[in-house]
Simulated scan of single mutants.
Amino acid sequence: MELLDEVAARASAARVVVVLEAVRRGEVAGSATHAWVRQHAPSLRQSGAAAVARIVVDVAAGDTPTQRRDPDPDSPLGVVWSAVRTGEVEAHTGCAVLRETTRLAPLLQPNAIPTATAGLVALAAEHGPAVMRRLRPRLLAEHGRDDALQDLHTCLATAARLSMPHIESADLTEYQLWMTPEQAATLEAAIGPLSAPAPNDETGEPDLRPAGQRRVEALTAVCATATTLHTGTHDTDRGPDTTLHLTIPLTDLT
């Protein structure tokens, strides 16, 4: 399997290089590159043809009528092209990295853009392009322009929201929650330790609750604690240690 995977990766890289050669020789150009790739690489008709054509057209755009010019190796395109033509990442992954660097470039220090792009390539090569977004807050914190991270959080704050409760089947209540990175970190810091599995200390029985159940119970515990803390008027008068909630049918209460 490892040998076959290496062959496939090298063949994928060679395929992109051949498409670039076809563009540079004048076999095809511009928007017609996609159709040319689909014609000569039938396996890419399922997916991937558009990404191959896109990255090749971008690389070829740097050529002059008399000279082939590969992209600057320190530019985002140069970093990504180096990874694609060596088989480190597929063309569609390279395009995803370029889209992410396009979003980040206005927020980063100019001299940090090659480093950020290389980090995104390494992360995407190891875990796939969907994971790249997790690196965005760290990149902005370490390499962002002055106040870039704070400006992003301020912008995101207007989109963060908690939906009204919606009663689903089996009387479960559904919420939808969107949070800024700072808000999400605060939430995880509060419920993370409380949502860890809690085996029975006396019997040794493992905690069989699913992760989702543990997390919602941890969130409920945090909210209950906050409610108790706010029943008093100051720190030395925080209300009763235990609160009892009774649910009584209206007929019985009457």
Rank of each mutant, 00 (worst) to 15 (best):
H143C: 12
M179Q: 13
P199F: 09
M179C: 13
G87N: 02
I248V: 13
T154C: 05
L4Q: 14
E90H: 11
P197Q: 05
R99D: 15
R133T: 10
R138C: 05
V216N: 07
A91Q: 05
V28R: 00
W81I: 04
E27A: 14
H92P: 03
T236M: 08
T66S: 02
L162M: 12
Q176W: 05
L250F: 13
H34T: 15
A61F: 09
N111R: 11
M1G: 12
Y175K: 05
L162H: 02
L172M: 15
Q109N: 10
V79Q: 03
A51Y: 11
A160Y: 09
V56K: 03
R133L: 13
R136G: 00
L194D: 07
R85D: 00
Q150C: 11
H34F: 08
A49F: 12
A105P: 03
E100D: 06
L187W: 06
A51Q: 01
T254C: 11
T243Q: 03
P165D: 10
V59F: 00
I167V: 15
Q213P: 04
W81E: 00
A112S: 12
V79H: 00
G119D: 08
Q183W: 06
D5H: 12
E205N: 02
A196I: 05
A160K: 09
P114L: 02
L187C: 11
T66R: 01
E21L: 07
V28E: 07
Q213S: 09
A41K: 06
T93C: 12
T115L: 15
A124I: 12
P199T: 10
P129I: 02
P165W: 11
R85Q: 11
V16H: 02
L156F: 05
L139C: 01
D5Y: 10
I113V: 15
A221N: 09
S43R: 14
R54M: 07
D74C: 10
A49Y: 11
L244N: 11
L208V: 12
A190N: 00
G78P: 01
P73W: 10
P110T: 01
T154S: 10
D241V: 10
T227K: 11
E182N: 05
P193H: 07
P206C: 09
R214I: 05
G26P: 13
A14T: 10
G94Q: 01
R209T: 12
V17E: 05
G94C: 03
R103G: 14
S47T: 14
V216F: 09
T251L: 13
A190D: 00
T64M: 03
L149W: 05
Y175V: 05
H245R: 08
A160P: 06
L172V: 10
L104Y: 03
T86N: 13
T64P: 01
T225E: 15
A125D: 06
V222Y: 03
L177K: 03
T101G: 03
P181M: 13
L104V: 04
A22T: 09
L104W: 03
S43C: 04
A157C: 05
A105C: 14
Y175W: 13
I55G: 00
V97D: 01
A49H: 06
E202A: 15
V37T: 00
T86G: 08
T228W: 02
D241N: 08
N111G: 05
T243Y: 04
A53F: 04
E142A: 14
I191E: 06
T228D: 08
